[in-house]
Design a protein around this nucleic acid. Structure first.
Lengths: 127, 127
DNA sequence: TTGATATACCTAGCACTGTCATGTATAATG
DNA sequence: CATTATACATGACAGTGCTAGGTATATCAA
């Protein structure tokens, strides 16, 4: 569905953004990604947990064990101030690349994929 | 400037889109990327040539040697019909991920990075 | 009890790919 | 003759998603 490189490029900003909404844990993050993407992105737990561990190692998130009402133990993650700064930086980089891609695509007269109306906003004509 | 994963995710669609504009060669592609991105993206030749070789191996582009008026030999690349199909698919995937990211960011009240006005268009307010 | 399913976390081995450094060659410039 | 820009190529290294497998518990049906 979505290729590996795109997954790699988007996993960090997506996880940080989800945790910026509220504290969460692995299994719930997987479901949240599926929900936010409208089912277009399906993550495996085998890729998510290493991402969470890396973010923790880098100090972008903090983890704590907690037992839910259901009786299950969950590892909740909370974003740190450093994580929020990282999220802003990731967002800046993504938008720089996105602007570049849209700039080239605009000149190409490519057919717009009809499956999902991504944005109804007209493209700016400036600079 | 731009992290490795984002480079990896965008290299294929960018190269294919540049070749969809017109036939080109390695060194010129590097300069074109710098130009189209407004200087925000700087590619190394050490990453571009393997990308071109891979695209050729996959049948997305075709290569031919040619001697320019300057006397230098250049390896020109031309996009194939299969390459155009791949470009459309890459574009579809990119926009799916982009829509997901914008969907999460929209809910966050993140400060807009002021360095580069990527888009002046207001975000659509609908679902 | 037993079995199936969903929840919940973790890791090892593999393949892929950008980075960095390096190599080769030529034209233009001073 | 030295320097710079042009022009292509590759090997060693590190990072990371994928696949497959492992462990454990709560819920529900048979």
């Amino acid at each position: 569905m979505i290729n590996k490189d795109l997954i790699a490029a988007s996993s960090t900003p997506i996880v940080l953004a989800i945790l910026a909404e509220e504290d969460s844990y692995g299994y719930a993050i997987l479901k949240r990604v599926r929900e936010v993407s409208g089912g277009r992105m399906e993550w495996t737990d085998g890729m998510l947990y290493p991402v969470l561990h890396r973010l923790e190692r880098l100090g972008h998130v903090e983890a704590r064990w907690q037992v839910a009402e259901s009786g299950r133990r969950r590892k909740y993650y909370r974003i740190t101030p450093g994580g929020r700064a990282q999220l802003a930086e990731e967002r800046r980089q993504w938008q720089a690349v996105d602007a570049t891609l849209r700039g080239i695509w605009r000149a190409l007269y490519l057919p717009v994929p009809a499956s999902h109306p991504v944005s109804a906003a007209p493209l700016p004509q400036g600079t």
